[in-house]
Design a protein around this nucleic acid. Sequence first.
DNA 1: AGGGAGAGTTGAACATGTTCAAAAAGGGTG
DNA 2: CACCCTTTTTGAACATGTTCAACTCTCCCT
Lengths: 217, 217
Amino acid sequence: MDTTKSAATRALVLETALAMFRSRGYAKTTMRAIAAEAGVSLGSAYYYFESKDQLVLELYRESVAEQHAGATAALDGATGLPDRLKAAIHAGLDALGPYHPFGGAFIASALPPQSSVNPFGEASRQARAEATAIFEDVVQGTKIPQFLRAQLPELLWLAYMGIVLFWVYDRSENQRRTRILVDGAAPLIGRLVSLSRLPVVKPLVEEALALKARVQA
Amino acid sequence: MDTTKSAATRALVLETALAMFRSRGYAKTTMRAIAAEAGVSLGSAYYYFESKDQLVLELYRESVAEQHAGATAALDGATGLPDRLKAAIHAGLDALGPYHPFGGAFIASALPPQSSVNPFGEASRQARAEATAIFEDVVQGTKIPQFLRAQLPELLWLAYMGIVLFWVYDRSENQRRTRILVDGAAPLIGRLVSLSRLPVVKPLVEEALALKARVQA
DNA sequence: AGGGAGAGTTGAACATGTTCAAAAAGGGTG
DNA sequence: CACCCTTTTTGAACATGTTCAACTCTCCCT
């Protein structure tokens, strides 16, 4: 069938591209090289992916899906916010691992607001929804103060984005420092959530949430 | 004198570039267009600036200097951490204002770790030192718990980087929402610093600082 | 079978950032 | 002034992302 063949070609180009990203890095993987390696013409590659950035978006999608799968498995045995948080974040870093060498180029094409790839934008809405869903799962089954519960998954996703940024800059072998950061930050976040019940702390958190709401509108 | 003439040419190219960035945006300002407008050859532009990114770095330097000047003036009458923080951050946003339309392209060239322009990297060490110095000034003359004092300026600078990221994505007219965020977040940070003295909160903050130290090494 | 519409493919062409070898200009020294 | 070394200038050349008009293929309708 036609649709199948077309999809196969598309998949071939994509897989070739991702494999070359991993083996040669982002800059060295030119569109011409991808096309040549996949055995199609340059124009064909562009027929399926409107830009090189689109290939990065696909990479992002795949990594989120992989994170979701890994997190779901790891969350199975984990109880308590800190441990569940660690599970989700480490799963994300595991999924991103092979692409660390060109993480810089990754965020360069991902962060510009007008980029179709940016994680806060329209094109990645679906991937973002899946990513925040992971943190919904993290929160499930833990005791969170009511006034904070609805907002927490999104806040955790934001924190995760920050960690990914740290990861991109992390030059220690195997991004060891990022792992240390995750293991250290997760318990702190857990304690912070607990503290947010205290009468001295609660108003502060409530105002922060209100500010977040005001600024998002 | 020779040095003077060379410096004048360099300055001419730079001023032309920054003016064109403001008037036409980043993408439309090609190196050829800069050279033509400045009345030099393409090669000459590259003689003075090894890449287009370098021009962005100069822009960053200039904006930090302008922020420093504006902040110093505004800090003169401001007392208390929240107000002083507002002064410094608003000065920064004022300096960046004209470049908002291409803020996305700005961070695209600035954030990649291997980029010579990235604000955490080597090339911008001087500009970063000046930027953290601004937040040293902010902290001066306010009452900060001893165990937090040394780290606070750098933390504030980091928070400021986060706000700039928000600003880049802010599509409200004149980035109104970013201003609201700043005005709302500054008092919260002030109260958070106060709270950090409490016996229930202090250990948490201390552990966070310890984690930061561990992860920077 | 014929033909036409749509899907898929192709490579040349274009704009742009960057490099580089060669030329020109300057400036000091004999 | 002649010579040489350094600084500055130049534009052609290159690689790459992207566009596009033309071409081929497939399959359905009559």
